[in-house]
C-alpha cells in the first residue's frame, strides 16, 4: 500500500494557510467597511478605511480568480 503522505500533508498545509489567510484578509475588508460607515456618521476621515477595504477585497477577488483558473485549467 502506497499512501502519499507528502501530498496529503501539502493539501492540509495549503488548505489551512489559504483558508485562514483568505478569511483574515476578507474580515479586515469587512471591518474596514464597517469602520468607514461609522466614520461617515461621525464625519471623520474615511480615506484610510476605504483604501484598506478596497485593497483587501482586491486580494480576495484575485484569489477567487485564481481558483476559477484552477477549475478551468
Amino acid at each position: 500500500m502506497n499512501i502519499d503522505w507528502a501530498a496529503l500533508g501539502s493539501v492540509f498545509g495549503v488548505s489551512l494557510v489559504v483558508t485562514v489567510a483568505m478569511v483574515g484578509v476578507f474580515t479586515l475588508g469587512v471591518v474596514g467597511l464597517a469602520r468607514r460607515e461609522a466614520a461617515v456618521s461621525r464625519q471623520g476621515g474615511t480615506a484610510l478605511a476605504t483604501t484598506g477595504a478596497c485593497l483587501c477585497f482586491a486580494v480576495c477577488a484575485a484569489v477567487v480568480g485564481y481558483g476559477i483558473q484552477l477549475i478551468v485549467a
Partner: peptide
C-alpha cells in the same frame, strides 16, 4: 482538514471583527 481550517478561520474572523457592528459586517 476542512474542519480544522474552518475552526481556525472562524476564530480569527471573530477576533478581528471584535468591536464592529454585527449588522454592518453581516452583509459583507
Amino acid at each position: 482538514v476542512a474542519g480544522i481550517a474552518a475552526a481556525f478561520a472562524t476564530r480569527l474572523t471573530y477576533r478581528l471583527g471584535r468591536g464592529t457592528d454585527e449588522k454592518a459586517t453581516a452583509k459583507g
